[in-house]
Amino acid sequence: MHPGIIFFLVILGSILFHIFTPWYWTDIASNWGGMDDTITLTFWVGGGVFVAVCLFMVYCVFKFSYKEDRKAEYKPEDKRLEKILTWATTLGVIALLAPGLIIWNQYVTVPKNALEIDVMAWQWGWQYRLPGKDGKLGTTQVININDENPFGINLDDPYGKDDVMIQSDAINLKNNRPVKILLRSVDVLHNWYVPQFRAKMDAVPGVVTFYWFEPNKTGEYEVLCAEYCGVGHYAMRGTVLVQDEQEYETWLGEQETFLDLIAKQQNLVIGDTKLAKNNNLNKE
């Protein structure tokens, strides 16, 4: 078979595979349709260049294959052609880069009404904290973390007392309400990623990183850790349940606040040893 035909079949096969592949992204369930559009544009630019270059090769293989009586033309440079190629490449690169910058700007501009959620990651699991009635999360420190204070909330921070604590890897979100995910890690790098929301960010120990999204489809989704974090990385999963307002409020009402937790522990402990410990932390 002529090599040009084989080459052409490779091009055709690549395109057909792209169209009919069973491995494509999951259905989107958030506001980040722009991310998908950007990737689609990347496919178009990259795919277009791939097909154009390969077809040109096929053409050359047919047109300029070896003939005994033909001599190669000497043409070391062509200013015009080189200029066209340079500008076309520049345009292609701009098309690849510019939409990303626009999306990134939206990504770090969090809407005012976004609900803040503290996502705390450790080896290997998740837990979540929602602001209480005051609408604000209390400040935290890794050094405060212990059995009585699983989130390491600063005890002298008045905003922290009514925080809703979800000590489980499952969290519920309200449909069509933007959320600001505040990521922190107590040990190594992690990444709270729900493929359907099309958004992720590393959780870095020592800093709080953030991103936002607005879920717009009710249902249950799987959380994956998207930054390699040690031997249990593959099993570091969780679930997100996106609910309508009423169901969400019911669920929220059933959750425990930090005050509840403190009270429960005081009842459990005979004597005031643990409270004294808390008070000590308070003074520091």
Binding site: V188, L189, Y228, C229, G230, V231
Partner: peptide, 15 residues
Amino acid sequence: AGWTLYPPQTILPGT
């Protein structure tokens, strides 16, 4: 630790 060797994970016993 992954070829990027990201700390802190790289030098902790979980890896």
